[in-house]
Amino acid sequence: MIDRSTPPLKSLYQQLILDHYRKPRNRGELDDRTVEVLMRNPTCGDEITLQLKVEDERIADVKFLGDGCSISQASVSMMTTLLKGESLDKAHKLATRFTKMMHGDEEAARDPDLGNLRSLAGVAKFPVRIKCALLGFDALQEAMKKTRGEEEDAEG
């Protein structure tokens, strides 16, 4: 039988999420950025511009600009708090873990590496909102691809 009962809204709109939505961390322009990606969700108009300063395969600094719903903006805000100082490999792992959590993987949802991002686990029960939560990480993946592509070009 299809379960049509409501997933509790409280699992979606936790205080931590609303706090990041109201007071986003690392919001602004990063003047010495090495890469910038604009990611849009064309169906709803949400957008995030993610700026990274990458040095020696490490994210030295990160900022974002954005406009969108509480889920997309809180998610990218939390993401930036975890990225500073991390290696690109670690950032890629975080993105993969987070994406798994969004698709309902309960083990990923317990991964302490995800930190505050675990408060977004409830989004998995709202299928139409999963894209919102992933927008920042989509921008991150694209930024890393761009960075690595440029490195290869430079080496090649």
Partner: peptide, 10 residues
């Protein structure tokens, strides 16, 4: 203070 998507979800 509330995005339209959040309004629609609630």
């Amino acid at each position: 203070g509330t995005h339209p998507h959040d309004i629609a979800t609630i």
